[in-house]
Amino acid sequence: MEQTTKCEMLLTVNGEQHSVIARPADTLLFVLRTILGLTGAKPGCLNGDCGACTVLVNDVPIKSCMILAIETVEKKITTIEGLKHTPIQQAFVEHFAFQCGYCTPGFIMNAHALTKKHPLASDEIIQEWLQSNICRCTSYKEIEEAVKTVLANNSASLNDNHF
């Protein structure tokens, strides 16, 4: 019986602790969406191919359809619901970097991590990171512009610090 195989796990999501009861075989994506009601991370393939389910685990972008919830116990999980008025969200809005918006949470999580980890990312690094997500609506050019705006502001503020 299924019930007997479930177990309790303590997850830290967007700074809050949640005790959830789930199967060890349940993915983080499933637990976030179905048990915690955080539907921002999207299922697009459940196969690691599309990136719509990307969340941050200890600040590293991870495809939440390919990781077990139980693996993330004692780790820091950040979902799109945990981002509030970040520069990358603002830039996505201003640059029309989405249409249907379904790929957007995953793209933003990845791009957010990118701009944090590589505040001055080169074109090669941007490409390497953002290749992990598929967007079917935009031409990617809009997303590129959004990310580069945030990076340009990063470099501007880094320069400011020097003075």
Partner: peptide
């Protein structure tokens, strides 16, 4: 191999 996010895992 695969893509960058997948390679984080």
């Amino acid at each position: 191999v695969a893509d960058r996010t997948a390679r984080n895992q």
